[in-house]
């Protein structure tokens, strides 16, 4: 593990990703102290002002400070990424473990189900789920979580299948250890590596998905700032107030990029084949 960590830390790009995520998290947490504008305070006399010393990133269609909204929007995005991936991790992990460990018809059924879900276009499923659940932060997270679940189920099942014939699992079973204990104690630690990689990549995808759903008006509700909905509101004003689109768009891009950099670096660090 320390070797992996060292390998990861020596990867400058991955490190840059980590720093970006930390900065983002810091910005999100410290938002109220970094700007004296409220993200929801409207000013009908100062609509769509260009970036200036008064409003660093300009104002939007309701005269709100975009810098403040981008900062507070980081909260939504980070929370969306982390929570929905946690949901997928727990749900998919359980499904994968059960399928991989017990095998047989249960495995077959669960895997056909994940196949079917994977055969859905990701967005279509997310849109449909968001529509079914109704729009709110919480439901958006659930929808993205559900859509992300099959990837984890597949991954965990594959690893569980590979670990099952190993001696230590068989020995534990022979010693009469309870099912759950075997699953958790022995299998989980061995699949942590690939899981971490998948978590960071899925977090990137989840941040993107939240922005997309909000862009379609199915996600976070106004006036709560979300990068996706900010971009959606900006669309009509591209020719007149491009800053409304550019800054939230950049924020999404950088956040997703950061998680992808981390995931990519982790994959390299964990993969024995790419060792130097």
């Amino acid at each position: 593990m320390t070797r992996t960590l060292r390998s990861f830390l020596s990867n400058r790009l991955a490190l840059a990703g980590l720093v970006m995520v930390l900065l983002l998290a810091l910005g999100a947490v410290l938002a109220p102290w970094l700007t004296h504008y409220s993200p929801t305070q409207t000013d009908f006399t100062g609509l769509q002002q260009a970036p200036s010393s008064k409003h660093l990133l300009g104002t939007d269609e309701l005269g709100r400070d975009i810098f403040s909204r981008v900062l507070f929007g980081a909260r939504v995005s980070l929370v969306a990424g982390l929570i929905s991936v946690s949901i997928a991790l727990v749900l998919g992990g359980l499904i994968g473990l059960v399928a991989g460990f017990y095998g047989g018809w249960l495995d077959n059924l669960l895997m056909r189900l994940t196949d079917a879900m994977l055969a859905f276009p990701f967005l279509v499923l997310a849109i449909a789920l968001a529509a079914v659940l109704g729009p709110s932060l919480q439901n958006t997270l659930i929808a993205i979580g559900i859509v992300t679940t099959p990837v984890f189920a597949r991954l965990v099942r594959g690893q569980a299948l590979a670990e099952r014939p190993r001696d230590y699992v068989q020995a534990a079973v022979a010693l009469g250890g309870g099912d759950l204990r075997i699953l958790l104690r022995h299998l989980l630690p061995n699949i942590t590596g690939p899981l971490i990689v998948q978590v960071s990549l899925s977090t990137a995808a989840a941040v993107l998905a939240e922005a997309t759903l909000s862009f379609l008006g199915l996600g976070i509700q106004p006036p709560t700032p979300s990068w996706g909905s900010m971009l959606n509101a900006a669309r009509g004003y591209l020719a007149y107030a491009p800053w409304m689109a550019i800054f939230p768009g950049l924020a999404i891009f950088l956040a997703v990029l950061a998680f992808n950099l981390i995931g990519d670096g982790l994959r390299d660090a964990l993969d024995p084949r790419t060792k130097k």
């Binding site: 790009l13 990137a204 993107l208 922005a211 997309t212 862009f215 971009l231 900006a234 669309r235 591209l238 020719a239 491009p242 689109a245 550019i246 768009g249 999404i252 891009f253 997703v256 990029l257 992808n260 950099l261 990519d264």
Partner: peptide, 21 residues
């Protein structure tokens, strides 16, 4: 690597809007 990951990370709607702009 950075370019490739950027390609993966940039949201379609943002890139589309940027290109149109």
């Amino acid at each position: 690597t950075v370019l490739a990951l950027s390609g993966i990370s940039i949201p379609n709607f943002f890139l589309g809007i940027l290109l149109v702009y």
